[in-house]
Design a binder for these strands. Sequence first.
DNA 1: AATCTATTTGGTTATTTTGCCAAGTAAATA
DNA 2: TATTTACTTGGCAAAATAACCAAATAGATT
Lengths: 105, 105
Amino acid sequence: MNNKKKQKYEARAKVIKALAHPSRLLIVDELSKGERCVCELRDMIGADISTVSKHLSVLKQAGIVEDDKRGLQVWYTLRVPCILNFFGCIEEVLKAMAKQARQAL
Amino acid sequence: MNNKKKQKYEARAKVIKALAHPSRLLIVDELSKGERCVCELRDMIGADISTVSKHLSVLKQAGIVEDDKRGLQVWYTLRVPCILNFFGCIEEVLKAMAKQARQAL
DNA sequence: AATCTATTTGGTTATTTTGCCAAGTAAATA
DNA sequence: TATTTACTTGGCAAAATAACCAAATAGATT
C-alpha cells in the first residue's frame, strides 16, 4: 500500500473509530433530533459526566459534532447528518449476522 | 438507558468497530471490486499474513464479509455492499474537519 | 506417505481505549 | 467577592486491540 492510499484509509478509520462506541452512537442518534447539553446526554447514558464529556470530545475531534457554550451549559449539535444513513445499513449487517447464526445450527 | 436500547447500540457499535481500522477499510474497498483471496489482500496491505487473516476474521464475525475455501485458497466477498455508501459521508466529515482546522488559524 | 502451500490459531508484548475520581475552569448567582 | 453549577482535563488502573512469530491445519502435489 503506497503512502497516499495509506493516509486515506487512516483518515477514514479515524472518523469511523470515533463512532465505534455504544454511548457515542446514542449521542449521534440523540443529536439527530436536535441539540443537547452535556447533562442531558449524561442522564440518557447514565455514566459519569467526565466520561460523557470525553466521548463528546472524541466526536468533536473527528469533526462529527460541534459545541456551543451558552451560559453554564455546552450545547452539542450533529455536524454531518449523513451519518444517520449508516444505521439502516448496519441493521442490514445485523440481519445478515442473524441469518449466519441460524445457518450455523 | 434501558437494557434494550443499550443492546441495540452495542450491536451497532460492534459492526462499526469492525470497520474502524485502515487495513479493514482497504479490504472492504477492495472486495467491492470482487472477491479476493487472503494472499492478494496481504500483498496490498503489506502486513504478515496472520495479521491479515485476523482482520478478515473480525470482518467475518461482524457479518460484513463471507469466506469460501476453494482448494488451498480462501476467497472473501463483501456481504453487505451498502457499507460502501459510508465513504461518501466520511469524506464530508473530513471536509468539515479541514474547514474546522482552517478556521482555527 | 512425505512435502509444500495457503491460511488460521495460540501466545506474547506493546499500544490504545475506557471509565472513574479528583482537580481545574468559567459563567452565573448570592 | 464567595459560592454554586456545568463542564473539561489530568491521572490512573483495567480492559480491549493490534502486530508479529511460531505452531497447527487442510488441501494439493510429488
